[in-house]
Amino acid sequence: MAQQEAPVAYEKYYVPDQSPWPIVGAVALFLIAVGAGNFTIEMTKGKEGFGGYTLAAGLFLLMVMLVGWFKNQIDESMSGLYSAQLGRSYRQGMLWFIFSEVMFFAAFFGALFYARMIAIPWLGGASNNAMTNEVLWPGFEAMWPLVSTPGGIQTQAMGWMGLPAINTVILLISSVTLHYAHVGLEQAKRKQLTVMLGVTILLGCIFLGLQVQEYVHAYRDLGLTLQSGIYGNTFFLLTGFHGLHVTLGTIILIVLFFRVLKGHFTPKEHFAFQAGSWYWHFVDVVWVMLFFFVYIL
């Protein structure tokens, strides 16, 4: 077995033995997909079923899989099985994963731009669509934010001042604190590392709390809901998926925090920390884009 040669520095590329975790992960995704699909149908069509339980079981199994898989990898890493080449594989893999996330957000930004620049002006009669406006949507005027839809739904726009501006500052600061945590790790300044990482986690949680408040404000005071036309759609899907990513990023940082306390990382070897920090910075950049294109412009 490959591991028996281990504790010495391992320069050959480490090809792991058989592992049960991927198939557990596949079953988990299966349960999540079946569960989420059925849960959606049951929730919106008022049917009875096991969708919710299946989804919960899938998410639980995914957690089990992640814990088991990561534990496996941490053990391998700590016993010196990994080479510099393998470290590069992980880093490149993480960067390409983040790129795929960028493209996921690009789809929703694309929808936002298309609606603002093309669909709504056309409904208002721009380009050669005078008759569309005249015959199909008489009286509709193109505007953004779309507070009055062609179908007649009324809502109010979310301003950028107040909570969104505060949240922007919070996330930007969190990027800086995480950077200094990373610097602390690289310079072996343990205290700086733990304090700065802790502050970053705290800022992430505050951000999420304020986001929840903003959603309550939108639903209660502004009448801005998921159903209130393309403005509400793009607003909630973009900020919602961003919020999910912040949640995931915060969980990653919390896991990293405990691993820091256990002393898992060295100034030179800390792929997991680097990946988590890349992910956090990516989530920040997405927020900045959101702040400009969803809130300000």
Partner: peptide
């Protein structure tokens, strides 16, 4: 592939959760 994921997500919310990405009545297309 992530763009496809975005497209099916919008179909899901349009069909089940009342969004209007692809519905002119809500400003979509």
């Amino acid at each position: 592939m992530p763009v496809l994921a975005g497209a099916v997500t919008m179909v899901l919310t349009d069909k089940f959760f009342g969004t209007h990405f692809f519905d002119a009545a809500g400003g979509g297309d």
